[in-house]
Protein backbone atom coordinates (compact mmCIF):
# COMPACT_ATOMS: atom_id res chain seq x y z
CA UNK A 1 0.00 0.00 0.00
CA UNK A 2 2.59 2.56 -1.02
CA UNK A 3 0.16 4.58 -3.14
CA UNK A 4 -2.11 5.55 -0.26
CA UNK A 5 0.94 6.86 1.60
CA UNK A 6 1.95 8.92 -1.43
CA UNK A 7 -1.55 10.36 -1.80
CA UNK A 8 -1.70 11.23 1.89
CA UNK A 9 1.67 12.97 1.74
CA UNK A 10 0.44 14.97 -1.26
CA UNK A 11 -2.69 15.94 0.67
CA UNK A 12 -0.66 17.03 3.71
CA UNK A 13 1.66 19.14 1.54
CA UNK A 14 -1.26 20.82 -0.22
CA UNK A 15 -2.97 21.44 3.13
CA UNK A 16 0.14 23.12 4.54
CA UNK A 17 0.33 25.32 1.44
CA UNK A 18 -3.38 26.17 1.76
CA UNK A 19 -2.96 27.15 5.39
CA UNK A 20 0.25 29.13 5.08
CA UNK A 21 0.09 30.98 1.75
CA UNK A 22 -0.70 34.70 1.92
CA UNK A 23 -2.94 35.00 -1.14
CA UNK A 24 -6.55 33.96 -0.62
CA UNK A 25 -7.13 32.78 -4.19
CA UNK A 26 -4.02 30.55 -4.10
CA UNK A 27 -5.23 29.15 -0.80
CA UNK A 28 -8.61 28.25 -2.32
CA UNK A 29 -6.93 26.51 -5.27
CA UNK A 30 -4.73 24.55 -2.85
CA UNK A 31 -7.76 23.36 -0.90
CA UNK A 32 -9.23 22.21 -4.21
CA UNK A 33 -6.15 20.07 -4.79
CA UNK A 34 -6.59 18.55 -1.33
CA UNK A 35 -10.11 17.55 -2.33
CA UNK A 36 -8.94 15.99 -5.59
CA UNK A 37 -6.35 14.02 -3.62
CA UNK A 38 -9.11 12.81 -1.30
CA UNK A 39 -11.09 11.65 -4.32
CA UNK A 40 -8.06 9.67 -5.57
CA UNK A 41 -7.65 8.16 -2.11
CA UNK A 42 -11.28 6.99 -2.13
CA UNK A 43 -10.68 5.42 -5.53
CA UNK A 44 -7.60 3.57 -4.25
CA UNK A 45 -9.47 2.44 -1.12
CA UNK A 46 -12.19 0.76 -3.24
CA UNK A 47 -15.01 3.26 -2.73
CA UNK A 48 -16.06 4.43 -6.22
CA UNK A 49 -19.35 5.99 -5.03
CA UNK A 50 -17.49 8.28 -2.70
CA UNK A 51 -14.91 9.13 -5.38
CA UNK A 52 -17.64 10.41 -7.73
CA UNK A 53 -19.38 12.25 -4.90
CA UNK A 54 -16.22 13.91 -3.57
CA UNK A 55 -15.08 15.03 -7.04
CA UNK A 56 -18.42 16.64 -7.89
CA UNK A 57 -18.88 18.29 -4.48
CA UNK A 58 -15.33 19.61 -4.61
CA UNK A 59 -15.93 21.28 -7.99
CA UNK A 60 -19.12 22.99 -6.75
CA UNK A 61 -17.63 24.25 -3.49
CA UNK A 62 -14.48 25.41 -5.32
CA UNK A 63 -16.57 27.49 -7.77
CA UNK A 64 -18.50 29.09 -4.92
CA UNK A 65 -15.35 29.75 -2.85
CA UNK A 66 -13.66 31.41 -5.84
CA UNK A 67 -16.74 33.57 -6.39
CA UNK A 68 -16.68 34.52 -2.69
CA UNK A 69 -13.00 35.41 -2.45
CA UNK A 70 -12.45 37.03 -5.82
CA UNK A 71 -10.72 40.43 -5.50
CA UNK A 72 -11.12 40.45 -1.72
CA UNK A 73 -7.55 40.14 -0.62
CA UNK A 74 -6.22 41.44 2.65
CA UNK A 75 -2.96 41.00 4.52
CA UNK A 76 -3.39 39.13 7.76
CA UNK A 77 -1.16 39.94 10.68
CA UNK A 78 -0.72 38.04 13.93
CA UNK A 79 -0.25 40.98 16.23
CA UNK A 80 -3.20 41.00 18.60
CA UNK A 81 -4.07 38.29 21.15
CA UNK A 82 -0.85 36.48 20.40
CA UNK A 83 -0.27 34.80 23.79
CA UNK A 84 -3.83 33.61 24.33
CA UNK A 85 -4.08 32.34 20.78
CA UNK A 86 -0.87 30.34 20.98
CA UNK A 87 -1.75 28.76 24.32
CA UNK A 88 -5.21 27.82 23.10
CA UNK A 89 -3.74 26.23 19.96
CA UNK A 90 -1.17 24.23 21.92
CA UNK A 91 -3.76 23.12 24.48
CA UNK A 92 -6.25 21.87 21.90
CA UNK A 93 -3.55 20.13 19.87
CA UNK A 94 -2.32 18.31 22.99
CA UNK A 95 -5.87 17.24 23.85
CA UNK A 96 -6.46 15.96 20.35
CA UNK A 97 -3.16 14.11 20.09
CA UNK A 98 -3.68 12.42 23.47
CA UNK A 99 -7.13 11.23 22.43
CA UNK A 100 -5.71 10.07 19.10
CA UNK A 101 -2.97 8.10 20.84
CA UNK A 102 -5.47 6.35 23.12
CA UNK A 103 -7.68 5.56 20.13
CA UNK A 104 -4.74 4.32 18.10
CA UNK A 105 -3.82 1.73 20.73
CA UNK A 106 -7.31 0.25 20.80
CA UNK A 107 -8.19 0.25 17.12
CA UNK A 108 -7.86 -2.77 14.87
CA UNK A 109 -4.87 -2.92 12.58
CA UNK A 110 -5.09 -1.43 9.12
CA UNK A 111 -6.47 -3.81 6.51
CA UNK A 112 -8.30 -6.24 8.79
CA UNK A 113 -11.71 -4.76 9.56
CA UNK A 114 -14.07 -6.23 12.12
CA UNK A 115 -17.27 -6.84 10.19
CA UNK A 116 -20.19 -6.52 12.61
CA UNK A 117 -23.58 -5.90 11.14
CA UNK A 118 -22.12 -5.27 7.70
CA UNK A 119 -21.59 -9.01 7.33
CA UNK A 120 -25.37 -9.32 7.16
CA UNK A 121 -25.52 -6.53 4.61
CA UNK A 122 -22.88 -8.16 2.42
CA UNK A 123 -24.31 -11.65 2.62
CA UNK A 124 -28.02 -10.96 2.28
CA UNK A 125 -28.11 -7.55 0.62
CA UNK A 126 -28.46 -8.95 -2.88
CA UNK A 127 -31.47 -11.16 -2.28
CA UNK A 128 -33.19 -8.89 0.22
CA UNK A 129 -33.12 -5.71 -1.86
CA UNK A 130 -32.27 -6.66 -5.42
CA UNK A 131 -29.64 -3.95 -5.70
CA UNK A 132 -26.22 -5.11 -6.80
CA UNK A 133 -24.51 -2.07 -5.33
CA UNK A 134 -24.31 -2.76 -1.60
CA UNK A 135 -23.78 0.91 -0.65
CA UNK A 136 -26.92 1.90 -2.54
CA UNK A 137 -28.74 -1.00 -0.87
CA UNK A 138 -27.75 0.34 2.55
CA UNK A 139 -28.57 3.98 1.87
CA UNK A 140 -31.83 3.31 0.02
CA UNK A 141 -33.21 0.24 1.78
CA UNK A 142 -31.73 -0.67 5.14
CA UNK A 143 -31.15 2.89 6.30
CA UNK A 144 -33.43 4.89 4.03
CA UNK A 145 -34.73 7.12 6.82
CA UNK A 146 -31.14 8.23 7.35
CA UNK A 147 -30.99 9.29 3.71
CA UNK A 148 -34.27 11.20 4.04
CA UNK A 149 -32.93 13.04 7.08
CA UNK A 150 -29.85 13.97 5.08
CA UNK A 151 -32.07 15.56 2.43
CA UNK A 152 -33.89 17.46 5.17
CA UNK A 153 -30.55 18.77 6.49
CA UNK A 154 -29.76 20.02 2.98
CA UNK A 155 -33.17 21.72 2.74
CA UNK A 156 -32.62 23.42 6.09
CA UNK A 157 -29.26 24.69 4.87
CA UNK A 158 -30.85 26.11 1.70
CA UNK A 159 -33.53 27.89 3.74
CA UNK A 160 -30.86 29.33 6.03
CA UNK A 161 -28.77 30.58 3.12
CA UNK A 162 -31.81 32.22 1.52
CA UNK A 163 -32.61 33.91 4.83
CA UNK A 164 -29.04 35.17 5.29
CA UNK A 165 -28.54 36.32 1.69
CA UNK A 166 -31.81 38.14 1.15
CA UNK A 167 -31.67 41.78 0.13
CA UNK A 168 -34.99 43.08 1.44
CA UNK A 169 -34.54 44.62 4.83
CA UNK A 170 -30.78 44.76 4.75
CA UNK A 171 -30.18 47.55 2.27
CA UNK A 172 -32.98 49.82 3.39
CA UNK A 173 -30.80 52.25 5.34
CA UNK A 174 -27.88 52.47 2.91
Amino acid sequence: MIEIHLILLFMITAAVIAVEVKDLLSSVVAIGSVGIGLSLAFLVLKAPDLAIMQLVVEILSLIILVRATMRKDLPFSISGRWVFNTFATIFFLIVFLTAAYIALKNIQSFGNPVLGISKTYIDKGMEMTGASNVVAAITLNFRSLDSLGEAMALLTSVIGILAVARRIGYNKRS
Binding site: D49, I52, L60, G130, A131, V135
Partner: peptide, 21 residues
Protein backbone atom coordinates in the same frame (compact mmCIF):
# COMPACT_ATOMS: atom_id res chain seq x y z
CA UNK B 1 -28.50 3.78 -12.23
CA UNK B 2 -27.27 4.17 -8.68
CA UNK B 3 -28.48 0.77 -7.52
CA UNK B 4 -26.50 -1.16 -10.12
CA UNK B 5 -23.31 0.82 -10.58
CA UNK B 6 -21.43 3.56 -8.72
CA UNK B 7 -23.38 6.76 -8.39
CA UNK B 8 -26.52 7.79 -6.62
CA UNK B 9 -29.09 10.50 -6.29
CA UNK B 10 -26.88 13.07 -4.64
CA UNK B 11 -24.00 12.84 -7.14
CA UNK B 12 -26.45 13.04 -10.04
CA UNK B 13 -28.18 16.02 -8.47
CA UNK B 14 -24.93 17.90 -8.03
CA UNK B 15 -24.01 17.18 -11.68
CA UNK B 16 -27.38 18.57 -12.85
CA UNK B 17 -26.84 21.65 -10.67
CA UNK B 18 -23.35 22.04 -12.18
CA UNK B 19 -24.86 22.13 -15.67
CA UNK B 20 -27.08 25.07 -14.62
CA UNK B 21 -24.07 26.74 -13.01
Amino acid sequence: SGHASPGGGFAGGVIVALSFV
